[in-house]
Design a protein around this nucleic acid. Structure first.
Lengths: 206, 206
DNA sequence: GTTGCCGTATGACTTTTGTCATCGTCAGCA
DNA sequence: TGCTGACGATGACAAAAGTCATACGGCAAC
């Protein structure tokens, strides 16, 4: 039996997934929780109790600590832990971030339940799996053309902040902030920062 | 047995929900599909075959035809049909739109599976159900303070369009467009159109 | 060890936004 | 009948955003 932990804030989906995975003969959903913090607590508790969990299935979007953060924390606790991220929003940037922290599998929620069970088995066996379509997208989106600072300022610009506000947040002079915004706009081939923010977000660069 | 149809583009969730609802003794998930169009086709087919479906559980966010649109179509086919919308994004505007077209229940995906089954029974019995928290939000958000035109221009502004572009889209002079933007900004108590668009969208006004 | 890029900053300049006053038409309503 | 408010437009002005040239220190690559 593969002991599995489940984290998803959407109760409906979480318990539905638990029910469904419970039908697999070799998978045992030992617990399911609604936040990243709860997942970490449960994982730690089970490790301490001498009955460690093999695979954590984590939703990407959760209130508070997000899925990738949560996975990173688990991997700090237990290097090489089996972590699997599922998500509704298959943006390339997320995939990249997830792989960077050591997540072993990344699936959109549009995959079938058969695949999910299979991937849990792969992860349990020490393997990795990335949804092929997402992988293709991530590769075609390419690396960010934005510098770190440009991405920083764009992040704040996305919510409609003024130059002054952005400048305060990132501890820059307003003039410098405007330069970064300007160069991000030029690099992305758009005509204002809001379009730039939208485009950068699509590509997973902010 | 209550015959139920399920529509959700996220296969994982859809089949998980189907599995779970299948465990209820009085609920029978006769079919589950991934788009609004498929749902309508399935509904129509079953009506014609003389074995109509009692309740359609529809995800709000689907590619192509969205959940509310789909429900509206079903209700045109079968006035009084039992329709139930589930969603990840519990925005008041959606709830309002859904109730306006005649949807009988509206649930966030954070509700428990027990509640879902119960609500299916309520809808089957001819009743209505709205998640209390969502209802409270919808009431507190109140009606839109924006005029039709203000909402129009804000819609385009949200994607980062310039005044000229917006003006072209809505067939207005640039000056008039700016006036509408300005008054929307004032009404929403923010300082630029992007913030205004964000706020209006939160409230479900655009 | 020079070249090039990033990060940071300033100043000057143009364009775009946002605000306001004012005007006219038209529909609904007291 | 006259008031009100939405719709549409113009012009003027102020503020914000975007562009460009320029400068200097640091750091990595060649």
């Amino acid at each position: 039996m593969i002991p599995v932990l489940l984290a998803d804030d959407e109760t409906l989906i979480r318990s539905a997934m638990a029910t469904m995975l419970g039908l697999e003969t070799d998978i045992d959903v030992v617990e399911h929780v609604g936040t990243g913090d709860e997942l970490i607590a449960a994982w730690r508790r089970r490790v301490n109790a001498g009955e460690p969990v093999a695979v954590a299935v984590i939703d990407l979007q959760m209130p508070g600590r997000d899925g990738i953060d949560t996975a990173a924390e688990l991997l700090k606790l237990t290097p090489g832990a089996g972590t699997l991220i599922v998500t509704s929003h298959g943006r390339p940037g997320y995939l990249k971030r997830a792989l960077a922290v050591g997540v072993r599998a990344f699936l959109p929620k549009t995959t079938s339940s058969v695949t999910l069970a299979d991937v849990i088995r792969i992860v349990h066996g020490g393997g990795r799996y990335v949804d092929p379509e997402l992988a293709a997208e991530a590769i075609s989106a390419g690396d960010s053309v934005l510098t770190a600072r440009e991405a920083d300022v764009l992040e704040y610009a996305a919510n409609g902040a003024s130059v002054e506000e952005i400048a305060r947040h990132v501890y820059l002079s307003p003039g410098t902030t405007r330069n970064y915004l300007s160069s991000a706009i030029a690099k992305l081939g758009v005509s204002n920062r809001y379009e730039a923010a939208v485009k950068a977000r699509e590509r997973g660069w902010i």
